[in-house]
């Protein structure tokens, strides 16, 4: 179950791309562990995770159809 993650704002400076793929992750906790291994700078970066366009609070289960995004602090306006 390949998982696609959309990356926004300053986090794209860390990942070098606005789309990142990981082979599999059951939930957001596992996903973040994998991502932080792949991109150590994410460990100190400020961001929240959105699953299906909602910002999640705790660990959240993922499916192949989940749309996942990493959102750094907003700076619109």
């Amino acid at each position: 179950m390949e998982i696609q993650i959309t990356i926004f704002g300053q986090l794209t400076d860390i990942t070098g791309s606005s789309l990142v793929r990981v082979p599999a992750a059951r939930d957001t906790e596992e996903l973040l562990t994998i991502l932080k291994q792949q991109y150590p700078a994410l460990g100190t970066a400020k961001f929240v995770v959105a699953v299906d366009k909602k910002i999640i609070q705790g660990n959240t289960a993922l499916t192949a159809n989940s749309s996942i995004a990493l959102l750094p602090p907003f700076s619109g306006g």
Partner: peptide, 22 residues
Amino acid sequence: KHELPVWGKELFEDESYQWKEN
């Protein structure tokens, strides 16, 4: 300003940049 997922990138004349912070 606080709730919309929008990001601003401040661009300088010399093409360097920094990410805006609200």
